[in-house]
Design a protein around this nucleic acid. Sequence first.
DNA 1: CCTACCGATCGGTAGG
DNA 2: CCTACCGATCGGTAGG
Lengths: 220, 220
Amino acid sequence: MVDRRRRAEGANTYERILRAAADLASLEGLERVTIGRLADELAMSKSGLFAHFGSKEELHLAAIEAARQRFVAAVIEPALKAPRGIARLEALCQKCIDYIAKPEFPGGCFFDMTRAEFHMRPGPVRDAIMANKQAWRQLLVDVANQARTQGELASNTDTEQLAFELEAVLDLPSWSVGDDSLELELQRARRGVDKLLGSARTPAAQRPPLAKRSRQRVGG
Amino acid sequence: MVDRRRRAEGANTYERILRAAADLASLEGLERVTIGRLADELAMSKSGLFAHFGSKEELHLAAIEAARQRFVAAVIEPALKAPRGIARLEALCQKCIDYIAKPEFPGGCFFDMTRAEFHMRPGPVRDAIMANKQAWRQLLVDVANQARTQGELASNTDTEQLAFELEAVLDLPSWSVGDDSLELELQRARRGVDKLLGSARTPAAQRPPLAKRSRQRVGG
DNA sequence: CCTACCGATCGGTAGG
DNA sequence: CCTACCGATCGGTAGG
């Protein structure tokens, strides 16, 4: 039964370890992703688990890479189906909110959590986390620039400022995961995104607000 | 020399422990504020330090209370010197940015860090951290309500939405403390605050933007 | 405030 | 992938 399920999920041990590691990191931070706790959770011996990695730091780096792939699959790939420009920028924001609403990681956003934990701890782990957050910011800037070039955002739009503001409202609800306030905070994030895009949008590029749409079409 | 300095700072052992605990928590999280590390840093024995508290959880709770007092002294008390309403709301935002720019805590905001760390870990520590964050949000709402009542914010302003958006842009620069991007992120936060207050402000309540003022008068 | 100590857990290794 | 083990550190206690 267990063997069948494992085969059906196509998850080998290495992948199962990294999934459990990223999930646990989103709940309590990478610091608490210890070899002993993971081994217990996966019903393995410590050394059996550890043998997949050269060190705890290598386990952390592998968990970050696994989390990156999950974020890309949950947020970026679906949003890239939307046409270039304002529709794609909106889709990125919507998918990012969905990714917290129906948590890909049980504790909220893996990268918000680990950035908080490691931002003052120099080393490869910090660098990998920060590189992912910077790539996300840059993606927002790039897609906003496309929208501006296409005439969907006002020509004087400061797209780096806009990306900062979008990231700010998209990040905040992470800390309400597991709390009664989550739905309200997510709705405020949706409205915040709408306000930011609405005020930068040119009249020709008006669309119904995110906060009032129950589902968004992202097909391209 | 050391004795003289201690007396001059008026810091007894208990206060010194809690200051070091909150500082370290802002850098690496409360999890890493261990009795052994604190004792080393303060040149005390583990048990001598531990004797001030009933448990590690009590130490954590005391550190949170000490951090609250430092936040109040650094941000809230100075801002409350500004007159009620929009000036006070602006002063709260400015002082909150200053509190990251010239860090009261070496790792950025103690409460941003510990909220990330504990939001999914039920218990008194989580509750105390969340209560502080909620009180800050509610203060923003209350002061915004005063501004609206005084006719400085448009009568249809959703002050809970505004407080969410202000908190979002004020929180984000915390994660750039210790990074080259800090100054730029702080400037974006200032501009974000200006945009939010500017678009909610009534024409009668226009003021020069935060982002362009080198210093703000907060006297009442 | 100290020394001395407890069992549990940490990251990691030896050897298979 | 396992058992068995290492020294270091954890939170906490005994006794002064």
